[in-house]
């Protein structure tokens, strides 16, 4: 799970964190907004960012890690280029949300919560996006797709540039 980061990225992390801290007046009780800001700009919470936040706020590093690992929103790894979030709210589940999840997982060959090795797609579950009347719902890069049938899964992925046919042939070989 350790990620290599370049000197350039290290610098970007440093500035981002410094700005997020500044914006929140270096307040310990603003830890969530600080982490949200950092993740909003970097896409995830790098280890270096958490270390820097802890030392600036003068709190144990593990306290930052504790918060970062508690909430669903935070991720410790960079996300895929395209994020697919399958709604697992009650209405979506009963309308076959799990079948949609399985279909994406099968096509992308990853499990829920994972990112494809080429970092193109990540697959996540969301508790409920509040569009229950359109169940089952999938959020594709912030766009809500309603009434998704399993047969639409390939279409959604192809629209994002995934080559479905080719992949199958590869698998066959």
């Amino acid at each position: 799970m350790e990620i290599e980061i370049t000197a350039e990225e290290r610098e970007a992390i440093k500035t981002t964190v410094a700005e997020a801290l500044e914006k929140n007046s270096y307040r310990r009780d603003r830890l969530l907004p600080i982490l949200q800001e950092v993740q909003g700009r970097l896409g995830y919470l790098p280890r270096e960012a958490m270390e820097q936040i802890a030392s600036s706020l003068k709190i144990p590093e593990v306290d930052v890690y504790s918060v970062a690992t508690f909430y669903n929103q935070f991720r410790l790894n960079p996300p895929g280029e395209h994020q697919i979030k399958v709604c697992m709210g009650t209405a979506c589940h009963m309308a076959g949300g799990h079948i949609i999840m399985d279909s994406f997982a099968r096509r992308l060959n990853i499990k829920e919560g994972e990112t494809t090795p080429d970092r193109k797609f990540s697959l996540e579950r969301v508790a409920c996006v509040g569009c229950c009347a359109l169940a089952p719902v999938v959020v594709v890069n912030e766009n809500v797709e309603g009434k998704v049938r399993p047969t639409r899964v390939d279409g959604i992925l192809m629209a994002l540039g995934k080559e479905i046919g080719k992949k199958n042939e590869e698998e066959k070989r």
């Binding site: 697992m88 709210g89 009650t90 209405a91 589940h93 508790a127 409920c128 509040g130 569009c131 229950c132």
Partner: peptide, 12 residues
Amino acid sequence: DEGDPGAFMDRA
């Protein structure tokens, strides 16, 4: 913080 999976009245 509407988190109930199946409730969306607060959002609305």
